[in-house]
Every structure is written in C-alpha cells, then in structure tokens.
Design a binder for these strands. Structure first.
Length: 596
RNA sequence: GCGCCUGUAGUUCAACUGGAUAGAACACCGGCCUUCGAAGCCGGGGGUUGCGGGUUCAAGUCCUGCCAGGCGCGCCA
C-alpha cells in the first residue's frame, strides 16, 4: 500500500513546525560556536508522544546526529536544549530515555481548539490538501447477476468512506459503479431466466449446474411471464435431442445460449436479458441507497462497445509495438510492463476480452478529466492488477494515477459459530439480510473497522448487542449523552452562553479537560492521514478514544455547576466533542442519535 | 511450482508509517449509582510481535531465508 509523507495544516502541524524551527535554530547556533560540526543539513523530525509522561512532543534529533557529531546523544540533547530560543508555548523541555528531547507545552495551548471546532462546525477537520483535484472512486461494481452479498457490502462501505475522507481532504470526488452488462455472464443470466420462464410455461428442462440458481431468478421469470405471457416460449426439444443434458457444465451453457439466441432472435433474447438486468440492477441500487451508499455515475460496459474507444486504443498499442497477433488472436505485450505474461485483447473468434474493454474503461476515466482513479476490488482479483497497470502505462500514463485497493473477504460469525456460505448453490447471506439483522449503523461501522487487506470477521451477535461490547453504541452513546446534558441544562433553567465560554477557556485546566482538548486537536490530522493512506479504520479507532476521553471526563466532573463561566466553558468543551463525533460519524456514514 | 496478502495478549484487532515500558476491546478478577443517562467510569492479571539471520543509536515496522494460513496463476468476468 502506498505510504505518504503527509503535509498537515492543523493546529498540531503548526506546533510541530514551531518546535522544528526552534531545534533548527539551536543547531545553527551550536554550529556557529563550533560545538558541533554537521556535514549536511539534518532532517528535524518532531512527533507527538504516545505517553503523556514524555510531554506533548518529542524530537529524536540528538540520537540521529550523535554518531556523525561524535558525541553521546544525551549530551548532545542537553547542548541543544541550552541553545533553544525562548518560546511562550513551552512550559518545560527535558531529556529522556536514550536522548529524546521532550517538549511540555503550556496548558493553554489547546484551549482555543474549542473555538476552532464550534466556529467551523461541520467544516472542522476538512482541509484543502487536495486543492480540488478530481478523483474517481470506483467501487462495488458487482456483476448484475444477483443481489449483493456481504462481501460486496464491505466494498460498498469501504468505498463510500474513502470517498468521504478524500472529500474532507479537499478533493473533488466522484463515485462510480461499473456495470458489467456485457459478455457471457449476462448471457448466462438470460438463459437462467429463460429456463425458469419455460418452467412456468409448463415446459420444464433440467436446470444446468452452472446457471444462476437463486430464487430471485424465478421471481424475474414470473414477472416476465406475467407481462409477456407465452411470448418467449421456445421448445428446447432440438437441444435435448442432441444430448445436451449430458454435456460438460460449461459447454452445456454455451450450447444453450447459442440455441436460445437462434430460436428467440437477438431482440427477444435481449428483452429477456434486460428484464433480468434491469430488475437486479434496480434491486442493487435500492439496497445500496438504503445502506447510505450512492453513486454519481453508473457506467455501463455496453456503452463502451458502442463507441470507438477500443479501436482507438488498440491502434495506439499496435503503433507502439505493444500489441501483436499470434494464433489468430491479438495480444498485449504486458510482460514488457511487469506482468507475468502477455494477455489476449481480441480472441480468435473476433470478440474482445473483458480485459480489452477494461482498458477502454480505465482510459475513459482519464479522458473524462480525472487526475486520479481509485479502484476497489475483491481480493480474488489481485492477479489482474499487473495487467491493468501495464495497459495504462503502455498508453502513456504513469502507474500511480491508478490506485487499486483490494478488499479482503468478510466471514460471518454468530458468536463463536461461523455462518456457512456457499456461492455455488446460491445460498449466501445478502447485504440486505445483514442490514435487516444488525442495522445500517453497525454494519457500516464494522465493515470499516479493519484495514482493507485484513480479513474481516463480522460477528453478528456483537454488532447487534446494545452494550459496551459494541463500539458503535459506545460512540453514539457519548453523543447522546452530550445531547442529554443540554436537555438537562434547559430543564434546570440555564441557557448556554458561548461568549462567556470563549472568554473563559482558561478554566479548562483539569487533567481530563486537557486530555480531551488534546484529543480533539488531533482530529484534522487523523482525517487527513486516513484519507491519504486510505485507512478508514483510523477514524473508528479515533472516535472510540474520543468517546472514552469524554465518558471519563463526564464521570469525574459536573458540567451543570452554579458558576456561569465554569458551566459554560465545560458545556462548550462538550459541544465541541459532540461536533467532532458528528463529523467523524458522518464520514463513516453512521448516524449520531440525540437519544438512544 | 510462481506471484500477491496475512501472521501481534485466551479471542478480535491497533500501534502516528523506524522511536521510549508493544496498546485497546471482548473474556476473567476487584471497586464506583441519593449528584448532568451505569449503553458509563476506575483498578488488576495476561506478550519470546510465527521462527532464524541481517541493517540501524533504535525493528512489530526495513532486507533476507524458512514455517503456517488465505487468494490468484483462462482466448471467464
């Protein structure tokens, strides 16, 4: 996975910059006084500490310079500290461990984050990092041959959250679903429907093993029959007479497709096919909408074959010697771009491969003006990455304009027990069933709780449980609790006075308040980091931590106190917390209820 | 056989992208409701980061060799 050196523009970033410049100044002074000699300008790295005992920020410069400077790190650290310029933001500086320089900041340093959050509201955490650059995120793109299952659900949730994250980071994001409405799978769908339809016509034949077995096919056939009656009734006697029933599974389908096309004619065959396609697609769309996942474009594979795109790109590939003919087929020399072997573009029978239209499709993304494309694929497609990247390179793009994220499979558990699924018989748990059982919020949250390359174990019992076992409720509870405090406030006859709060931020001096403030201040960095590294789980973990800080604070201190300044300032901190929880949950597509 | 991914507490996972004593949750043990929601809080035990080498002041993180699991290796999509 791509890792990024992330420039940040938040309050924390400014603090880091400040400390960095202090260190640099100290080093320059040391060099002037010839206390140390440096060959080249050192890279000063400031990082947040994990442990509050180590202060707020730490610098490792003394350790990385010790060797070239020829002295021991702790001694060097002390020299650096002695030459640090004065700063009103620093309370204390200390040497620790093997030579870390630890910075302890003044208590008031984070207090104004409350003002930032409450004035920026839903905009808090957003940045302009992407500078409006446009990105196309393509995800789900499940074949429209049946309802979405729980594996697709993960891709849907993941893609939606990554899109939200990138928007928050200042990119212009479009979400796209690529509809594989062309090719053999569609034909198999058509004949599967046709056979069920013929059963309704009173003319049943054995159903092929590799046809689509799901009951939704029967439902589609029923609608077709209701609308068109016997219009598509054909006799399969001729096919059966040729010994069709005993053929190999794949040839069985091919013969059936050929026979049906011949008997029905392309127009009627297409009508049968489209009746299934449209119905299934409508179902998928509704399913995703109810899951809070929407797309800007639904891009049809068929529409590609109607244009000249493929011919255009094939011509370019040939022109540059990247395509050649062999055994009657047209091949792409992908091995020249790091793929294991060359790939067929046009089959011996003249039909383009799926890969060929995929090249056209991916190039269309850049033709449409996107500077970057992100694909989310099921992990079983990883062998396909090399050839697609090879293709866009051969067509003049750098490989990094396309990022492909592999989403590992999800397996379902009911407590300890694994829920068995078999795609072969068509008995898999659908996304719709999952949503019905655990609800949208839990499903969305659980799906993005793990890094995408991590296999997900989805525990239905846990997702359903309304207890502290369940991180979704834990975070939502913090939000509801804050809302409840405000209700209590009104009942007690108080009104929140923000002016008074902002004038008294200095009162936020308790340990728990300081901790909460520091956590809140991290939010913009977390958003940007998880956006640029495509790691939504960081938001979930962060929100859990934030909720924990709040619950702890809540349990230790009373907010609705008599003193106006203290009451209002504590309420402002609570409101700021509520705002950040809302913003974070919004990115995840999880609701923030006012009461539970 | 080759390629990609994964391996961290009993379990499910983090680890600020090379930093300090590897952290959470669940489970287990013990405390906290007359006070803004106990769907909460506080404390405790629990680890040879799959194994072995190497690079580095510093390795769960980088390199390398094994071991185990998953996925892929079509003129299917």
């Amino acid at each position: 996975m791509a890792r990024y050196n992330v420039p940040l523009f938040s309050r924390l970033y400014q603090l880091k910059q400040h400390l960095e410049s202090l260190i640099t100044q100290a080093l320059e002074k040391l060099q002037e006084q010839q206390e140390i000699t440096m060959v080249e300008k050192p890279f000063v790295h400031i990082e947040r500490t994990r442990d509050t005992r180590h202060g707020d920020f730490a610098c490792n410069i003394a350790m990385s310079l010790a060797k070239t400077a020829g002295c021991n790190p702790r001694q060097l650290a002390s020299q650096i500290i002695n030459h640090l310029p004065a700063s009103d933001r620093i309370k204390n500086v200390a040497i620790a461990g093997p030579g870390f320089i630890n910075f302890f900041l003044n208590d008031n340093i984070y207090q104004s984050i409350v003002t930032d959050i409450l004035t920026q509201a839903s905009g808090f955490g957003r940045s302009e990092h992407g500078q409006g650059q446009s990105i196309l995120v393509e995800f789900v793109s499940a074949n429209p041959t049946g309802p979405l299952h729980i594996g697709h659900g993960r891709g849907a949730a993941y893609g939606a959250v990554i899109s939200n994250l990138l928007e928050s980071a200042g990119y212009k994001v479009d979400r796209e679903y690529y509809i594989n409405d062309a090719g053999r799978q569609m034909d198999i769908l058509a004949v599967s429907i046709l056979l069920r339809y013929l059963e309704l016509c009173g003319d049943p034949v054995p159903f092929p093993e590799k046809g689509y077995q799901g009951s939704y096919i029967v439902a589609i056939a029923r609608d077709l029959y209701a609308e068109h009656g016997m219009k598509f009734h054909i006799s399969l006697d001729g096919l059966v007479a040729q010994g069709w029933i005993d053929r190999e599974p794949e040839t069985q389908l091919d013969e059936l497709i050929r026979y049906a096309l011949d008997k029905l004619g392309t127009a009627d065959f297409r009508t049968v096919l489209d009746s299934g396609l449209n119905q299934i697609l409508a179902g998928i769309r509704k399913d995703l909408e109810e899951f809070g996942v929407t797309f800007d474009t639904w891009f049809s594979e068929r529409s590609l074959s109607e244009g000249q795109g493929l011919q255009h790109y094939l011509a370019i590939l040939k022109q540059h010697g990247h395509a050649y003919e062999d055994n009657g087929a047209l091949w792409f020399r992908s091995s020249a771009f790091g793929d294991e072997k060359d790939r067929v573009l046009i089959r011996e029978n003249g039909q383009p491969t799926y890969f060929a239209s995929d090249i056209t499709y991916h190039m269309s993304k850049f033709e449409r003006g996107y500077t970057k494309a992100i694909d989310l694929w099921g992990a079983d497609h990883h062998g396909y990455i090399a050839r697609v990247k090879a293709a866009i390179q051969a067509l003049g793009k750098t490989p990094d304009v396309l990022d492909i994220l592999l989403v590992q499979f999800a397996s379902l558990y009911r407590g300890k027990e694994k829920v068995q699924m078999s795609t072969r018989s068509g008995e898999f748990v659908t996304l719709e069933q999952l949503r019905a059982e655990v609800g949208k919020d839990a499903a969305r949250f659980f799906y993005v709780m793990r890094r995408c390359e991590q296999h997900l174990e989805f525990d239905l019992e846990l997702a359903k449980s309304q207890s502290n076992d369940n991180p979704v409720y834990y975070i939502q509870y913090a939000h509801a609790r804050i809302c409840s405090v405000l209700r209590q406030m009104r009942e007690k006859g108080y009104a929140y006075n923000q002016e008074e709060a902002f004038a008294n931020l200095g009162l936020l001096s308790e340990v728990h308040e300081q901790r909460l403030l520091a956590t809140l201040a991290r939010y913009p960095d977390i958003v940007q980091l998880s956006a640029l590294s495509y790691e939504p789980h960081q938001i979930g973990y962060y929100l859990r931590e934030l909720a924990n800080d709040f619950h702890t604070y809540y349990n230790t201190h009373q907010f609705l106190v008599e003193s106006g300044p203290l009451r209002n300032v504590r309420l402002s901190l609570s409101l700021a917390t509520r705002q950040v929880i809302r913003n974070g949950l919004a990115i995840l597509g999880v609701s923030a209820p006012e009461e539970m």
